[in-house]
Computed example of a mutant assay.
Amino acid sequence: MPKKVELDQSRRRAPKGHFVVYVGSRMTRFVVPTSYLKNPVFQQLLEKAADEYGYDSHNRIVLPCDESTFQRLTTFLAKHT
């Protein structure tokens, strides 16, 4: 059985092939597949984030949209990617 420390460390990292973004006023954490990076709509969202927050967001990717909009986007991308 893994040690608790190992479990805690795994929760901070996204699984292989995924990355973490933070969305909304509550900074909700989402783990998304790297395949989304190929989608033009997701790329535009990342560009908007860079324009709004810059590239230094305390080592976090913060996206400038609310949670419900992001969930609709990821639902669409999951069906069409």
Rank of each mutant, 00 (worst) to 15 (best):
K38W: 02
I61G: 07
L45R: 01
G17D: 11
F76L: 07
D56I: 10
R72F: 05
R12M: 09
T34Q: 14
L46E: 07
Q9R: 10
G17A: 08
G17Q: 07
F19H: 10
L73K: 01
F30A: 02
P33K: 11
D56T: 11
S25M: 10
N39I: 01
H18N: 09
R72S: 14
G17H: 05
K4H: 12
T75H: 15
V31R: 11
L63P: 06
R72N: 13
A49R: 07
F42A: 02
F19E: 00
R60T: 00
F42M: 01
L77W: 07
Q9T: 00
K4N: 12
H18P: 00
C65V: 14
T74D: 05
D56S: 05
L46T: 05
P64T: 01
Y36K: 08
T28W: 05
E47M: 14
L63C: 07
D8H: 08
A50F: 04
K38C: 10
S57R: 12
Q71G: 03
V20W: 05
V20I: 10
L77T: 06
S68K: 08
A49Q: 05
Q44E: 11
N39S: 11
F30R: 02
Y53P: 02
F30Y: 15
F30C: 01
V41D: 03
C65P: 09
E47L: 15
K48S: 12
H18T: 01
E47Y: 14
R60C: 03
V21Q: 01
T75M: 12
F70S: 01
H18E: 03
I61R: 09
R72L: 11
H18Q: 06
D66I: 02
L37C: 08
T28F: 05
G54V: 07
M27D: 09
